[in-house]
Amino acid sequence: MVAQEFIVDLDKPLVFQVGHLGEAYQEWVHQPIVSKEGPRFFESDFWEFLTRTVWWAIPVIWLPVVCWNISVSMRMGCSLPEIALIVAFGILIWTLLEYFLHRFLFHIKTKSYWGNTMHYLLHGCHHKHPMDGLRLVFPPAAATVLCVPFWNLLKLMSTPSTTPALFGGFLLGYVMYDVTHYYLHHGQPTSVVPRNLKKYHLNHHFRIQNKGFGITSSLWDKVFGTLPPSKSAQKSK
């Protein structure tokens, strides 16, 4: 069977199907299916369970870790003004990582079987089913594993007394990112800032998917030149 002729059966678990799409995968995955009913990923109930996360689990699990890390730095002698600056810097580091991960990893071009499969698990599933409410936040089990290299990286950038607070700020940035991401898909903002942010993110999903990589803000899109053009600018071309 030619890879491009493969048709995904949406009534069967998807993860081990999408790799067969080959070069056609990129086109397929960026044609969203707008439904709150998410697809099944795996035959195994255990692995399927690990792919589904309610949004409120993120603050419930990670905010105590944030507070504990900040308290460690305070017990090691950091003042409140120092803690505030360190935490703010940690959040800033997260926003930069958020941008780079989204732009260069989540939107990597794949065409091999395992490349497509891994991309679908990492981010492709979100573009294919953007309203799947149980796959909008990062599974805590996977996040726990990733905490180890990020802790070690931040430890290289700071002193023993500031590392915990820096990591706490970094995790706080992550929590803000994940709950914001969920809200942008399922919330109904009434004030200007969140309403514009929702429009900005849905624009990335449904209009220009290779621009607008920021989730919590458009800061790094402005810095690195990936702001999506306005509709009026596109029409004038």
Rank of each mutant, 00 (worst) to 15 (best):
Phe104Met: 00
Ala88Phe: 14
Gln26Leu: 10
Leu184Ala: 10
Tyr174Gly: 01
Phe150Lys: 02
Leu101Val: 15
Lys111Pro: 00
Val8Thr: 03
Tyr113Lys: 04
Met157Pro: 02
Gln234Thr: 06
Ser161Asp: 14
Val148Asp: 05
Ile86Thr: 09
Trp94Phe: 10
Ala141Gln: 09
Ser73His: 00
His20Asn: 15
Ser230Trp: 12
Gln26Ala: 06
Thr226Met: 06
Asp45Ala: 14
Leu172Gly: 03
Leu122Ile: 15
Leu85Glu: 07
Leu14Val: 00
Ile86Asp: 05
Leu97Pro: 00
Met176Tyr: 13
Gly22Val: 14
His201Thr: 01
Leu122Glu: 01
Leu134Trp: 12
Asp221Cys: 12
Phe170Ser: 07
Lys109Gly: 00
Ala57Met: 14
Cys125Tyr: 05
Pro228Met: 07
Asn69Val: 00
Thr163Tyr: 08
Ala84Cys: 12
Gly19Phe: 10
Leu156Glu: 14
Trp62Phe: 15
Leu146Asn: 07
Met118Tyr: 14
Arg40Gly: 01
Phe42Ser: 05
Trp68Asn: 02
Leu227Asn: 11
Gly168Glu: 10
His102Cys: 06
Met176Glu: 11
His201Asp: 05
His126Ser: 03
Val8Trp: 03
Gly124Val: 05
Asp178Gln: 15
Pro160Phe: 04
Lys199Pro: 04
Gly124Arg: 04
Phe150Val: 13
Ile7Trp: 06
Ala57Arg: 12
Val193Arg: 13
Pro81Val: 04
Val223Tyr: 05
Pro140His: 01
Gln234Cys: 14
Val60Pro: 10
Gly77Pro: 08
Gln209Ala: 09
Tyr99His: 03
Tyr177Leu: 06
Gly19Tyr: 11
His107Asn: 08
Val137Met: 10
Asp9Gln: 14
Pro189Met: 02
Phe138Arg: 00
Ser158Val: 00
Met76Lys: 12
Gln209Arg: 09
Lys199Met: 10
Leu63Asn: 05
